[in-house]
Simulated scan of single mutants.
Amino acid sequence: MPKLDAYESDLLAAFEKGQLRSVATRNELAKARAAARATSIKDRRVNIRLTSGDLQDIQTKALEEGMPYQTLIASVLHKYATGRLVEVRTEEPAPPAYGGRRRKG
């Protein structure tokens, strides 16, 4: 477990003593439960091909996160589909291999 700062330690202590109470209304909780149920229903199956290396990397990351690798894949795809997957660039992108627009003929 990572080291907690003072605020996090105080928050954890209050939680463990039962001093924290939810401020959500019954209506808000009902909406949140309904949304969670609706997004967790998986009604379609897909098959994809991955390289052995990519699958191994995904399985390693899933193990680090403490979840099945299929769940991790579904989560990443869901975030992409809903526009919540953000690309983080660490270096300048390479120019297109074909030099931009293709010529006809």
Rank of each mutant, 00 (worst) to 15 (best):
residue 104 K to Q: 12
residue 86 V to Q: 08
residue 6 A to H: 08
residue 2 P to M: 06
residue 46 V to S: 02
residue 22 S to M: 02
residue 29 L to W: 06
residue 89 R to L: 13
residue 29 L to N: 08
residue 46 V to Q: 00
residue 94 A to G: 02
residue 26 R to N: 02
residue 43 D to F: 15
residue 14 A to I: 04
residue 39 T to Q: 13
residue 83 G to Q: 07
residue 94 A to K: 10
residue 93 P to A: 14
residue 59 Q to R: 08
residue 8 E to Q: 12
residue 105 G to K: 13
residue 22 S to T: 08
residue 100 G to M: 10
residue 64 E to T: 13
residue 55 L to C: 12
residue 74 A to M: 07
residue 47 N to Q: 15
residue 32 A to G: 07
residue 61 K to H: 10
residue 2 P to Q: 07
residue 82 T to Y: 14
residue 24 A to N: 00
residue 17 K to H: 11
residue 17 K to V: 09
residue 72 L to Q: 05
residue 84 R to T: 14
residue 75 S to H: 06
residue 31 K to G: 03
residue 42 K to T: 13
residue 7 Y to S: 00
residue 90 T to L: 08
residue 6 A to F: 11
residue 82 T to N: 13
residue 63 L to K: 11
residue 32 A to E: 09
residue 103 R to C: 07
residue 77 L to T: 11
residue 70 Q to I: 13
residue 92 E to M: 08
residue 36 A to I: 10
residue 82 T to R: 15
residue 20 L to W: 06
residue 90 T to Y: 06
residue 16 E to T: 07
residue 90 T to P: 00
residue 52 S to A: 15
residue 1 M to K: 13
residue 71 T to W: 04
residue 59 Q to F: 01
residue 62 A to T: 03
residue 87 E to W: 08
residue 80 Y to R: 11
residue 57 D to K: 14
residue 45 R to M: 07
residue 31 K to D: 01
residue 57 D to M: 13
residue 94 A to V: 05
residue 41 I to F: 14
residue 92 E to D: 04
